[in-house]
């Protein structure tokens, strides 16, 4: 049994069918990426897994537990952390407070302290800005804070929605380097990206989404060499 299994997932917004029965899985230790154009259903998929959006049909299980019947704030306790589209900062809270709130489900003080140390060694910039309000951070720093916050919750699986969005290429590289590092330390990652080039490079496996369905799957390497993927998402 895979860590995360999505089967025949359908989601509708009013009359719009955002997901038309997609299926995929994520094995423990993998980096899986969903690539696809705007409106393919990538964000909706992540939102449904983490309980922010409800499904019309299908099945989502995490370590055998049914997620579709579980409320969002309980799903975190199962070990899934979602870094949402647009980073989801608490803008009026400080960097430290943003990180602290992510430890809501963690009761051990020693554990929390360890997580703080880990996060600050990965993101030294954040430790310099610790008492600054999150809304005063630059886009790149906010993205780092969003990833750092996910690490504070200590999820086994991190769902990442467009971590490269709006960032300078050098920062995108930095973020992806850190994602690989986090993955090596044992965290499984499900990554949604429009920057298919970068995503496929670090992905163990990848799925291509088009208008709410999976149209292709394979290893990251396979897909980045595939002609159709190249034409559609990698600029030829």
């Amino acid at each position: 049994m895979a860590m995360l299994e999505v089967e025949g997932l359908e989601v509708t917004y009013g009359n719009i069918r955002a997901l038309r029965g997609i299926s995929f899985k994520v094995e423990k230790g993998e980096i899986v990426t969903l690539v696809g154009a705007n409106g393919a259903g990538k964000t909706t998929t992540l939102r449904t897994i983490s309980g922010m959006t409800s499904a019309a049909k299908g099945k989502v299980t995490f370590n055998g537990k049914d997620l579709l019947k579980t409320k969002a704030h309980h799903i975190v306790r199962y070990g899934i952390t979602h870094v949402p589209e647009g980073r989801g900062m608490f803008g009026n809270l400080t960097v430290k407070e943003n990180l602290e709130l992510a430890t809501w489900t963690r009761k051990s003080k020693a554990e929390v302290k360890k997580n703080f140390e880990r996060v600050f060694s990965l993101f030294p910039r954040l430790s310099e800005r610790i008492n600054q309000k999150a809304m005063t951070l630059s886009g790149g720093e906010q993205q780092m804070l969003a990833v750092a916050r996910a690490l504070m919750s200590q999820g086994e699986l991190i769902l990442l929605d467009e971590p490269s969005m709006g960032l300078a290429p050098i920062l995108v590289k930095e973020i992806f380097r850190i994602l690989e590092e986090i993955n090596k330390e044992g965290t499984t990652i499900l990554l949604v990206e429009q920057n298919a080039h970068m995503a496929l490079k670090i992905a163990t496996r990848a799925y291509v989404l088009e208008t709410g369905t999976v149209v292709m799957e394979g290893s990251g390497q396979e897909l980045s060499k595939d002609m159709r993927v190249k034409e559609a998402y990698l600029g030829g």
Partner: peptide, 24 residues
């Protein structure tokens, strides 16, 4: 306190609060 921080966080972003494991 944590609950106080959560109270301030609600007005910033309700949805993300749930993603931290906090019940609105």
């Amino acid at each position: 306190t944590m609950i106080g921080k959560a109270m301030r966080a609600v007005s910033d972003n309700k949805e993300v609060l749930a993603l931290m494991g906090i019940s609105l």
